[in-house]
Amino acid sequence: MMIELINVNVYYGIIHALKGISFHIDEGEIVTIIGANGAGKTTTLKAISGIQRIKSGSIMFNGKDISKSSATDIVGLGISHVPEGRRIFSNMTVMENLEMGAFLRKDKAEIKKDFNKVFELFPRLLERKNQLAGTLSGGEQQMLAIGRGLMSKPKLLLLDEPSMGLAPIVVKEIFEIIKDINKEGTTILLVEQNANMALQTADRAYIIRNGEIDIEGRAEDLLKDETVRKAYLGG
């Protein structure tokens, strides 16, 4: 097991956002978490990456409890979180955004190789590397957000709704790239509202409802499941 959440509870003031969530991801997997608005998907990712403190429970990453570690240390351990809404640094260039992704790294030569890897994955970023990130199209911004996330050389990549607000053709492209990233050896936790695409891409899935894991299983099984189809895949 690469990462395991055990009975994790998160509160925002009096709002009980995560109610004893438990799940795990094995090395090399693509696991997806799907669920409606406000179900607690983003909160789950924030808890893992250390920008939202948990009230109780534990988060084990490669055998170590990281639930009290700082966000900085968690990046250093090999978890990279590509946030919902992209959150690229709009006033910095594409290149500077990627440099920020490698913020904690000191291996200059390796960083350079990883820039090239990102540009191979996203050739459109190479053409625009000196452009201000805020001037990119929505799809390009998502590519930049993912590329920036890869620059820390993560073992586990957390993706929060990478398809949000993108045209179907771009969504397809992004999901293909997510599969490629996984094939290169990065484990992926994919949060999505686009349940159909997510289930087609992932190995396993958890469906979260009101802060609790409602259904879990192999992605291809859930795609065929009657209740899942009705509730999340539009019939």
Partner: peptide, 23 residues
């Protein structure tokens, strides 16, 4: 410099900067 880039990143989006490992 790294410190300077961190300053710009934090002022643009503190949470995103944290996700990059910025202290």
């Amino acid at each position: 410099t790294k410190a300077g880039k961190a300053m710009r990143a934090v002022s643009l989006d503190r949470e995103a900067a944290q996700l990059m490992g910025v202290n």
